[in-house]
């Protein structure tokens, strides 16, 4: 496969997101820019200008009408995807580190950063899908996280039932999305190794977290039980689940300052690592970034994936047939068994 390099950003990438049909990729970077690209050929569709600080996060609604972004300028902004028009700006006391639409696109979550004098806050807004309509200023839910360590990532589960957060001490917490009550905390990752990413499965019934502890873990949404663990040899920044029928997870990470204790002659470990989701075994790597991978995202169609790197590039990879044909012997066995 020939990766397509998207060079629209001058600084490191912080997040990349596919539209729900997988045809568009939205990329945000520390250079204050939000770009949109066609995933098929890497052609840039446009850019969304307005933020005045490094962009930390982006998400698009299921209909690919609205785009939400959060930045270091302490605002979350809502844009019309097609025209680039800024529809709404929400101001906060601190930077917005995560934004996410619920699975039905009716709610939008914003996570603000914990800083001296300010705690982490989670805001949930009810969203009007019409771009012309005005959007509410007040959140329908606000959670101030005061007793738990700093929140690093957050998301809305299936049925918009729970809000799940990842923290800087490696723990995962589950909150009631209606009342904001903390239901349950799981100490999944190694102590004090922050959770760097949280991404859902296609139906949001399970999710994957990545951590600086060099592992990624698959969790059950309702119980927070760790279902699978994938062990890498470098701190991870991001992890994604490929949609069925493929059963893979993709991990991305790497250390910028060279890790002296390894004997690898290669320049760092800037690779996207593929593991089999069920068997937890590594099955391949894709190199190319010359800086750590900050985010990996898989198209909902499963035909391609992209990674945003510290090097300022987004690399889009369309898989070749072997990727789809690959099966472990027990999977093949099962397939054939089912036929009879």
């Amino acid at each position: 496969m020939r990766p397509i390099l998207l060079q629209g950003h001058e600084r490191a990438l912080t997040q990349v997101k596919f539209s729900k049909e997988g045809d568009l990729i939205f990329s945000v970077s520390k250079d204050h820019l939000v770009c949109a690209w066609y995933s098929a050929n890497g052609e840039r569709f446009g850019a969304y200008k307005g933020h005045q600080g490094a962009l930390w996060t982006v998400d698009v609604d299921p209909s690919t009408t609205l785009l939400a972004t959060g930045a270091a300028d302490s605002t979350m902004r809502l844009w019309e995807v097609r025209t680039g028009k800024l529809l709404k700006t929400w101001d906060y006391p601190t930077a917005v580190k995560r934004v996410e639409f619920s699975e039905d696109g009716k709610q939008l979550l914003a996570l603000t950063e914990k800083r001296t004098g300010h705690l982490s806050n989670i805001y949930v807004y009810d969203i009007n899908p019409d771009p012309e309509a005005s959007q509410t200023e007040e959140p329908s839910l606000r959670i101030t996280v005061d007793e738990l360590p700093r929140v690093t990532v957050a998301g809305i589960s299936c049925l918009s039932k729970y809000i799940v957060t990842g923290h800087e001490d490696g723990s995962i917490s589950q909150w009631d999305a209606k009342t904001g009550e903390l239901i349950h905390t799981a100490f999944s990752h190694d102590e004090n190794q922050l959770v760097s990413d949280l991404q859902w499965s296609a139906d949001r019934t399970y999710f994957i977290t990545s951590s600086k502890d060099k592992t990624a873990k698959l969790h059950d949404t309702s119980s927070l039980e760790v279902l699978k663990t994938y062990v890498a040899d470098t701190p991870l920044n991001s992890a994604a689940i490929t949609p069925e029928p493929t059963q893979y997870v993709i991990l991305g990470g790497g250390q910028a300052a060279m890790d002296v204790t390894t004997t690898s002659a290669r320049q760092g470990k800037f690779e996207a690592r593929f593991y089999h989701k069920v068997f937890e075994e590594e099955i391949g790597r894709v190199r190319g970034h010359f800086g750590p991978l900050n985010y990996v995202a898989v198209s909902p169609t499963g035909h391609c994936y992209c990674s945003g790197g510290e090097d300022g590039y987004v690399r889009v990879h369309h898989f070749d047939p072997p990727y789809f044909d690959f099966k472990f012997e027990v999977e093949r066995e099962r397939e054939q068994g089912l036929r009879f």
């Binding site: 593929f274 099955i283 690959f326």
Partner: peptide, 15 residues
């Protein structure tokens, strides 16, 4: 100026 093709990679998952 925004889009280029990288070098071809053969990516084949292996056990």
């Amino acid at each position: 100026d925004t889009t280029t093709l990288g070098e071809n990679i053969i990516f084949r998952p292996v056990m």
